[in-house]
């Protein structure tokens, strides 16, 4: 009984924000003390389809930035983590990887804004990509140091004694063995970039309008209906990825 109640309470709490965003995304005119918007409409969603709408552009921009960051952080992290995991100073290297998080990405961005301006990397997509890589890449490194354990090293050595050169071992043993981990890392690095606001708005100086920047702009304009729509757009790709990721988890276990 208690367990069932607990279950529904948690399910309700988890689903509530999505319900609220969905309702707002179809609503207009929400005056106190009404519980629901007075007007139900597709207008908000149509904003996405109109050709000049910058919301659709923000969506595409965010998708490409995040996909790029996820690819780079996963690929580079995978390789760097190997050298760090087997290095005698493993722990010291790893501490460095945690620093951008410990110092808070926004604060780091604040201290670096000057250099980005000087290098012509402020207010444009390459600059935002580089800035996000500064937090996503260390994440990739941290993620994969657990993968490069004694067992993986033993497997690599075994492949060598069976006659595999480094390239063969990498392509035939390490990469396939890492498949699941690579996918999970890609997923999480994608989210880091997809969710990122503070660093992006400081380095992009408001000119690189990713979806999070857009949401904040709508909130600032007190346009809760557009804000809800943009929020839903932010939540949908991760939810889709989560679904894919869960599938992988089921397959391997």
């Amino acid at each position: 009984m208690l367990k069932t109640m607990l279950k529904y309470t948690f399910a309700g709490a988890v689903l509530f924000p999505f319900a609220l965003l969905l309702v707002f995304s179809f609503g207009q005119n929400w005056r106190f003390p009404a519980l629901f918007p007075a007007l139900w409409t597709m207008d908000n969603w149509q904003l996405l389809l109109t050709s000049q709408s910058d919301l659709a552009q923000s969506l595409l921009r965010s998708l490409s930035i995040s996909a790029g960051i996820a690819t780079a952080a996963t690929g580079l992290g995978f390789i760097t983590a190997k050298h760090i995991a087997y290095h005698p100073w493993r722990q010291q290297w790893l501490t460095l990887a945690y620093l951008p998080y410990i110092f808070a990405p926004v604060i780091l961005a604040a201290t670096l804004q000057f250099f980005f301006l000087r290098l012509g990397l402020a207010g444009n997509v390459p600059g935002v990509l580089f800035a996000q890589l500064l937090i996503a890449y260390p994440f990739g490194v941290i993620f994969f140091t657990g993968f490069w354990n004694d067992r993986m090293r033993a497997m690599e050595q075994l492949s060598a004694t069976l006659g595999g050169n480094k390239r063969q071992t990498f392509l035939r043993v390490l990469l396939p063995a890492a498949q699941g981990a690579l996918l999970v890392c890609f997923f999480q690095a994608f989210l880091i970039s997809w969710f990122e606001y503070g660093l992006t708005t400081l380095i992009g100086i408001g000119k690189v309008q990713t979806l999070t920047v857009k949401v904040f702009q709508y909130i600032g304009e007190a346009n809760i209906f557009h804000a809800a729509l943009a929020s839903l757009l932010l939540a949908l790709p991760p939810a889709g990825l989560l679904w894919v990721n869960k599938q992988v988890l089921f397959k391997t276990s």
Binding site: L158, G163, G164
Partner: peptide, 13 residues
């Protein structure tokens, strides 16, 4: 190098 020796080492596992 190991991969050219043609000596196979098997682990406990």
């Amino acid at each position: 190098p190991a991969h050219l020796r043609n000596i196979v080492y098997l682990y406990q596992e």
